[in-house]
């Protein structure tokens, strides 16, 4: 079943999402990769204010290609999430509710997700041209010097993703594979 969700992503909405759900995400989300996460966590450690409201936010791990012609943004698929594992627990503790990326996460991230109520979505890696069409508006909000890795505020419409890890720690990578293998036994 496909679920439509709109940001801000409240705890109530997070609790309704189960590993394996297909979702269409709409609303405002923010981009950040390793370099931006490092700076955000340094700000947090110094007790300073972050450049966007982290509470109930969704962060998309993406470094988009430059816009071409009349494009709003260039190709914009997810990057591999494990590089953010060192930072995500801090961000989740600050109130972040959703992450969009691809690939495995560490036990520390999953523990933070369960403790605070957060969800990890997978978008389709390598489908950057397709996914860029779901992005309707882009604005750089911080770290312009990082180029593709700057923090951007995106307005998205029906961005397709699936719930990889839900707030109870259920994991589609483990369950989906197991169920598939059982189906072909």
């Amino acid at each position: 079943m496909e679920k439509r969700i709109t940001t801000p992503l409240t705890l109530e909405k997070v609790k309704d999402l189960k590993a394996g759900d297909s979702v269409l995400i709409s609303g405002v989300i923010y981009t950040a990769r390793d370099a931006a996460h490092k700076r955000l966590c340094e700000l947090a450690a110094e007790g300073k204010e972050l450049p966007f409201d982290v509470k109930d936010s969704v962060i998309y791990f993406v470094g988009p290609a430059p816009a071409k012609g009349d494009q709003v943004i260039g190709s914009a698929g997810p990057t591999t999430s494990y590089r953010m594992d060192a930072y995500s627990p801090t961000m989740i503790a600050l109130g972040q509710r959703g992450m969009i990326g691809k690939g495995k996460r560490s036990p520390e991230v999953v523990a933070a997700m369960k403790a605070h109520g957060a969800v990890y979505f997978g978008a389709i890696g390598g489908a950057g041209a397709y996914l860029s069409r779901c992005i309707k508006k882009v604005e750089i909000v911080a770290y312009e010097d990082l180029g593709a890795e700057a923090v951007r505020r995106l307005e998205v419409e029906d961005l397709p993703a699936f719930v990889i890890i839900d707030c109870e720690g259920n994991n589609l990578y483990e369950n989906g594979r197991k169920e598939y293998l059982e189906s072909v036994k």
Partner: peptide
């Protein structure tokens, strides 16, 4: 559209 298939 002659755009990159992947942003990477």
């Amino acid at each position: 559209k002659y755009v990159p298939a992947c942003q990477d």
